Amino acid sequence: MEIFAEYLARIDNPSHRERLETVFGWITDNFQALTPKIAWNQPMFTDHGTFIIGFSTAKPHMAVAPEKAGILRFADDIAQAGYAHTKELVRIPWDSPVDLALLEKLIAFNIADKANCDTFWRK
């Protein structure tokens, strides 16, 4: 994940950095067609030039941004995982496990839903 090396190096907490590295590696292994990139100073993955999922960090959590459509579609799953969310992002507390099955649903949904999308963001 050379593309994310500089971003990860700025994360002071080693366990937070390791968690993100693990998540990014899992995405790369399981969704090989996605392109990792840094945009707006945040790591994200795209497919045919359209946004699929992005990440950011805060002191209490890792934020996962699948766009509003993914959050609406999987709001119940997000709540069952014990995560808080806004219209645009899911907050995964650093002391909670990452629900990879939920992450897989969010990514797979965006890939399928945006298969014919020719813009970066949904309109």
Rank of each mutant, 00 (worst) to 15 (best):
F4G: 02
F4A: 04
A5G: 13
A5I: 13
A5E: 14
Y7Q: 11
L8M: 14
A9T: 11
A9I: 12
D12Q: 08
D12Y: 03
S15T: 06
H16L: 10
H16A: 12
H16T: 06
R17H: 02
E18H: 00
R19V: 11
R19A: 15
L20P: 01
L20M: 06
L20T: 00
E21W: 00
T22C: 07
T22K: 08
T22M: 04
F24V: 04
F24S: 04
W26F: 10
T28M: 02
N30R: 00
Q32C: 02
A33S: 07
A33L: 01
T35Y: 00
T35F: 04
P36H: 00
K37T: 11
A39C: 11
N41G: 03
Q42Y: 01
M44Y: 02
F45I: 04
T46D: 02
D47K: 14
G49V: 03
G49F: 01
G49W: 03
T50C: 06
T50R: 13
T50M: 02
I52Y: 13
I53Q: 08
I53C: 06
A58Y: 02
K59F: 00
K59V: 05
K59I: 08
P60V: 04
P60G: 07
P60A: 09
P60K: 11
H61W: 05
H61T: 11
A63T: 01
A63L: 06
V64S: 03
A65E: 13
P66D: 09
P66H: 04
E67L: 10
E67A: 11
E67G: 07
K68W: 06
K68C: 10
A69R: 14
G70W: 02
I71Q: 05
L72H: 13
L72P: 10
F74S: 01
F74K: 00
A75Q: 07
D76A: 11
D77H: 01
D77P: 01
A79I: 15
A79D: 07
Q80R: 15
A81D: 06
A81K: 01
G82C: 03
G82H: 03
A84G: 05
A84S: 14
H85M: 10
T86Y: 05
T86C: 10
T86M: 13
K87R: 10
K87V: 11
E88D: 13
E88L: 14
L89G: 09
V90M: 11
R91E: 05
P93R: 08
W94S: 00
D95F: 11
V98M: 03
V98L: 08
D99T: 15
L100W: 04
L100K: 04
A101H: 15
L102R: 06
L102D: 15
L103E: 06
L103N: 10
E104G: 08
E104M: 14
E104H: 13
E104N: 12
I107S: 03
I107G: 01
F109I: 09
N110I: 15
N110C: 10
I111W: 14
I111F: 10
I111V: 12
A115R: 01
N116L: 13
N116Y: 07
C117K: 12
T119F: 09
W121K: 03
W121N: 01
R122E: 13
R122G: 04
K123D: 08
K123I: 08
K123S: 13
K123W: 07
